[in-house]
Simulated assay, not measured.
Amino acid sequence: MLAVLLRLLSFFTGQPLASPKQLAQLQSELGMQQAKTAALEELNGKLRAELKTQQQQNEQQQMALRLTLEGRISARQQEMSTLREAYEQLARSVDLETQRQIRENNALLNQLNWLSGTIAHDFRAPLRAIDAYSFFLADDLGANAPPEAEKSLEEIRRNGKRMGVLLDALIEYLRLGVCPLNLQTHSLQNILEQVVDEHFDFSPVPIEIQVSGQFKFDKALVMRLFKELIDNAVKFAKPVEQPRVQIRMASPNTLEIIDNGVGFSQAHDAQKFRLFHRMHGNDEFEGEGIGLAMAERIATRHHWTLQLARVGNQTVASLELETDS
């Protein structure tokens, strides 16, 4: 009967009507949709709460990080300020120390100049007198002078001349320690070739040059250094049957001057660069023990290291050079 009434109602209204079963199904679906909507709203609320909590935590972390960074920056600024004050204090101290050293160096230079002048004049005056009076005495004695007297006078003049050479060497040695350096970059090969051409053009000992490199040094002083080292090598190599001198680069910063001469005894190893120290007797080789001391003095002024060693049957003079940075 209900179904018939529903059909009649649908016929008169012109609209389809759902059956009770369909209405129940629709109500069930509507209930499910409402439940889902409520669940979604609950989930959305939870997400909003979690997001708010996360934002609060992020803000707290950012605040803590900001405070930490500000603390570190403040500490670093304080540290930099302390270092700056310490540096300024050190700079003032170094400046004062530099001024003190300059004053001391100037005082030392004045003393050396005074000593050089004293040696050059006051010490030479007695030598000139001794030399002159020896000639006067020889002239007074004339041809009747005893042979012993002539020999003694000749010995006096010879030693006076030697003393003059020693005084010149001492003055030059002192000058090398205080003279200003004209540091320029030069070719090592060009300098050595110039030294050999000027001083060893007629050397009886062959000199072989195999060097390279640009270094900063005082040209005049380093030419003197090489002249002394090569002269020492040639002098002691000359007596052997096949003498030779080789100048080579053992490394990019190490120059060696090698000779196959007679060498020197280990007893002289500690004193070989001492001024006026001879490593051979006066009757064996000429010289006054000046050359090596001059060379070592010049090397020291350039912060180079000069060494002399006997290796097998060869004498090796090695120079550790500072590069031109």
Rank of each mutant, 00 (worst) to 15 (best):
E104A: 05
Q184P: 03
I156D: 03
N106Q: 14
L112E: 09
F135H: 09
A132C: 01
R157F: 10
E88S: 06
A91D: 10
L153N: 05
H186K: 03
I191M: 12
V205A: 02
A145M: 13
F135Q: 05
Q99C: 04
L127M: 13
S93H: 07
E104Y: 07
S152L: 15
I191S: 11
R162F: 05
S134C: 08
A120P: 10
Q189M: 06
N106V: 05
P126N: 02
I130E: 10
N159A: 01
I156E: 03
I207N: 06
I171G: 00
H121L: 11
A120T: 08
S187E: 12
L174H: 05
E198K: 08
L108H: 10
W114E: 14
L108Q: 13
A125H: 15
D122V: 03
G117S: 14
I209Y: 13
S116P: 03
Q184Y: 14
E154K: 13
H199G: 00
N144D: 15
E154R: 15
G160F: 04
A132M: 05
Q89L: 09
Y87D: 02
D131L: 13
N159H: 12
L108N: 09
V94S: 02
C179W: 09
R92Y: 06
S203C: 10
G117E: 15
C179S: 12
L192I: 09
C179V: 14
L108Y: 13
I156T: 06
E97A: 12
I130Q: 06
A143L: 15
C179Q: 14
V196D: 05
S212Q: 14
V211A: 01
V195N: 07
K161M: 05
T185I: 13
S187Y: 10
Q89H: 12
Q194W: 08
E148M: 06
T118A: 03
L112R: 06
A145Q: 08
E150C: 08
E97V: 01
A91E: 14
R92Q: 08
L127A: 03
Q89I: 00
G164F: 10
L167Y: 14
R103T: 03
I156R: 00
D168I: 02
N110M: 11
P126D: 04
